[in-house]
Every structure is written in C-alpha cells, then in structure tokens.
C-alpha cells in the first residue's frame, strides 16, 4: 500500500483513534491517542490488510524547544531553498509538531509481506508521561522502551522491566530532554570536568 491508502485504511478502521495524519516526503504518519495505542498496534500487526510484522524503531522527541532555537537574525535569510526532487512525492507539507503535548513517542513499523512502512506518533503530556507498553505485541519494544524511559523519562505502562539501559542507575535526569544541558556530567568516580 502506498502512504495515502495506508492512512485512509487506518482512518476507516479507527475513525476516533487517528487524530491527524500526513505523508510528508512519502512517509505515512498517523497521530494516535494513547488510549487506543494497544488496540491499533494489535490490529496493525495482525490484520491481513496491514501485517506490520516489524516494530523497527521506537523513540521519542521532546518538542519543548521547538521553534525556540534562535538563529542569529543577521543570517536569517541565508540557507537553503527547498527544491523537492521529482522522485519524492511532496504533496503534503509537514503540519508541525503536535502541540501542546511536550513529548511524542514515535514508532516506525514495517510490513515484511506487504513492504510498506508506517510511522505512528503518540503525543504525551509532560505531567502524565505514560504510554501503554507495546511489549505484548512486539518483543523488540522491550529494550526500545527502556531506552526511551532512560533518555526521556516517559514511562511505559505494563513494561516488565522498566529500568535504565544506557545510563547508570545513579544518573539523575534524562539526558535527551531538551532541558538537560549537553555537558552536565555526573561522574561515578573522578572529578567533574
């Protein structure tokens, strides 16, 4: 299925769960409310129309600094114009980050039999940063969700072993959040430098 028909099929199936959709640069993307995540995920995996056998990637984006990065006004007009290549469909512009949620959990799915890809995005509020765990659907979600917890501090409801994976237990904070300074070190031994 191509991006447009994939999105349409998903909209037909889950008229309430799909909050928004776009296919920027040919990548089919749907925005899903977190209540219906598990249901949608199961269907995507098992339904013969989708057959998303792979959860390729699960990550998150912290949109709290989006659009706030200052680029020097002096240079505001240099840079690159966009000239989409004819090979890449560019009908739809990117709608921008799904405000007002701070985080977005992003899953990339791939169907081996049907060879299509889909990106699911789940907006997550900072105050209640918790999503249902996908470990019961795809085994690959296990470590990926641990990494998202480690790096962003988003909890996954129903995860069997949600603990830090890349950082050490003594580490305080979540380094990929935009408010974590890039070189704030918390050494286990040795000086802070």
């Amino acid at each position: 299925m191509n991006a447009a028909s994939l999105i349409q099929a998903l909209r037909d199936r889950f008229p309430h769960a799909v909050q928004a959709a776009h296919s920027y640069r040919g990548d089919a993307t749907v925005l899903i409310g977190r209540e219906s995540l598990l249901e949608v995920a199961r269907t995507l995996k098992e339904d013969p129309a989708f057959q998303m056998s792979f959860l390729m990637d699960l990550t998150a984006v912290d949109f709290s600094a989006y659009g706030k990065k200052r680029s020097p006004a002096f240079f505001a007009h240099s840079g690159v114009a966009v000239k989409p290549s004819p090979e890449i469909p560019d009908e739809e512009p990117w709608p921008g980050p799904p405000a007002p949620a701070r985080f977005v959990v992003v899953c990339h799915l791939f169907s081996l039999p049907l060879k299509h890809r889909l990106r699911i995005e789940i907006p997550v509020e900072e105050a209640d940063a918790e999503v249902d765990s996908l470990t019961s659907v795809w085994a690959s979600a296990n470590w990926l969700e641990r990494e998202v917890w480690d790096m962003f501090g988003i909890r996954f409801h129903g995860h069997p072993n949600l603990k830090r994976i890349l950082m050490y237990d003594e580490f305080v904070g979540h380094p990929l959040r935009k408010d974590y300074p890039v070189n704030k070190r918390q050494p286990l031994i040795g000086p802070i430098n």
Partner: peptide, 27 residues
C-alpha cells in the same frame, strides 16, 4: 559558518539503508 549552512525545511523523515548488521535507519 555558524548560522549559515544547510537549513532543511521543517519536517521529519526516516530513511533505512542496509547496514552490515541489518536495517540502519536514520530518523
């Protein structure tokens, strides 16, 4: 120069290539 350089339009993409160990994707 800082502040110049490539400035892609706003957006998000995922691109997979076949790495030596399997699918290597950049988002």
């Amino acid at each position: 120069m800082y502040g110049h350089g490539i400035r892609p339009p706003k957006g998000e993409v995922y691109f997979p290539v076949e790495g030596a160990n399997g699918e290597l994707g950049f988002y």
